[in-house]
Design a protein around this nucleic acid. Sequence first.
DNA 1: ATATCTGCAAAGACTTTGCATGAGA
DNA 2: TCTCATGCAAAGTCTTTGCAGATAT
Lengths: 155, 155
Amino acid sequence: MSPHKEHNPNCCCRRIRGHGRRMTPARHAVLDALSERGEHLTAEEVFRSAARRYPNLGLATVYRTLELLTELGMVSRFDTGDDKARYEFADPTGAKGHHHHLVCTSCRKIIDYKDFIKEETELLRSTEEGLSRKYGFKINSHVIQFYGVCRECGG
Amino acid sequence: MSPHKEHNPNCCCRRIRGHGRRMTPARHAVLDALSERGEHLTAEEVFRSAARRYPNLGLATVYRTLELLTELGMVSRFDTGDDKARYEFADPTGAKGHHHHLVCTSCRKIIDYKDFIKEETELLRSTEEGLSRKYGFKINSHVIQFYGVCRECGG
DNA sequence: ATATCTGCAAAGACTTTGCATGAGA
DNA sequence: TCTCATGCAAAGTCTTTGCAGATAT
């Protein structure tokens, strides 16, 4: 199944228009880049990829688009400790399965892992619920990352 | 119990010297600031606090010291999405109990929470073990953060 | 028609680096 | 004494902003 199927531009389009914003070639190019290039992309990576299809694209537009998509909950933004923000399509429903990151502090490689056991997902859900009740927070998302040294770097 | 007791300068001192580095007034001031001011401090906050005791202090020295302490595993560094790194004493043994963060995406407030149930800690440990085995990673630390909207902001 | 978007360049925020001076061990 | 550390200022990186022209609906 192609990534395009999972993040159908029409669907994104509707969502963007629904918020009174416009669908443009630049935004389309950014969405395509996110679909094709996969997870944990830097703004620069998104830019380089999107610019191949839409050479007129400016980096500032990429930042603005990523910010918009993040606000709309379509994209999640996170850090891995190298001072560059990372972006990827959000998976709010967990439809494709949870995925989190394993970061090598030596070579900066990032591994996506999805080996979640049922209890883990369940525990996470009940933690969110408990935190919500105790602190009056409405929790929208979470970040779980493990840091260490990968095999190649001598882990 | 005062924070100073938990992070005895002598202890830190030994650790720093053990790595062939020197104990200096600037470093002492940074350690004090981390002790007194508590969790999730920005470099700027550490600087302002430490400079009260050691007015000659430069911001660059604070950055260098925080980097050193992070390398030695005494301090942990993390992000909460506002482009400023945050620092706090690490708790590798979990002696003071795990603590993680609840971040309000509206007012940027950070709440430390320690309400960890036994299963949660256990699950985390076994996940680390599993990831270690499967990916050949030697895992040193993890970050868990929840994002949402706090009570005051309308959560 | 008109409010939104865009690219470009400039500005901004945080962090790192170069260098001569100062100071632990 | 001899490295290591410091303060200052300059440079670097990533990100945001201002603005006039272009564009989606």
